[in-house]
């Protein structure tokens, strides 16, 4: 009984084919950059647009400046790690339009050593979001003004939110840290 609503929603999501051209964002992007979109998803009333990473900055400028979309607020930049995929990193951008009260999600896929263009020129708030993304995943953003660690100490090793990073830190890390920082006590 309890699981019924969940199943209902799944059916509703999967059975009805969605006409993506009803979304103004998709129309606008297709108009100007026909080959930019890799994939489109619609789940729980949220639109996801997967982009080719070369087009990211152009699409962001387009969505921000077009009078019909006006995505003037960057909510966040998120990294996600899928170690088993060919391109293990996903960078997710949530945009919000204050005027139309709409949201859209942009995504780019990155390989292990690939970099993505920083969206700092579009929304300056990307500064800290991308720094956090770099801090936690080691994803590098080209042309970022100040790409340093933000939450962790500057001498931290490794990227904690990657799936291969153990919850309690790499083995031996704690002992090494204590040895370095409490060397005075160890002598006593």
């Amino acid at each position: 009984m309890a699981e019924e609503p969940i199943k209902d929603r799944e059916k509703a999501d999967s059975e009805v084919p969605i006409d993506f051209s009803k979304f103004v964002e998709v129309r606008k992007i297709k108009e100007k950059y026909p080959e930019a979109i890799v994939d489109l998803k619609y789940f729980r009333d949220e639109l996801t647009i997967v982009l080719k990473k070369e087009y990211l900055l152009n699409v962001c400028f387009l969505l921000r400046d077009d009078p019909e979309t006006k995505y003037n607020f960057l909510t966040e930049v998120i990294g996600v790690h899928y170690p088993n995929r060919e391109k293990p990193f996903e960078v997710v951008y949530h945009l919000y339009s204050v005027e139309y009260a709409r949201r859209v999600r942009l995504k780019v896929m990155l390989g292990e050593d690939e970099e993505v263009e920083s969206v700092y020129p579009v929304w300056p708030s990307a500064n800290w979001y991308e720094r956090e993304c770099f801090d936690m995943f080691g994803i590098r953003f080209t042309n970022h003004p100040d790409l340093r660690r933000i939450l962790l100490p500057e001498d931290w090793e490794g990227y904690p939110l990657r799936k291969d990073y153990p919850l309690e830190g790499p083995p031996g890390y704690r002992e090494k840290w204590l040895k370095e920082h409490l060397s005075l006590y160890n002598k006593l």
Binding site: F43, E46, T48, E76, V92, R103
Partner: peptide, 23 residues
């Protein structure tokens, strides 16, 4: 066990927009 997917939900917290993105 929720279904496979991703959502973003934002609420107006006392300090501003609080959002949770769950994959």
């Amino acid at each position: 066990k929720p279904p496979v997917g991703e959502v973003y939900q934002a609420v107006e917290a006392p300090k501003g927009e609080l959002g949770f993105y769950i994959v």
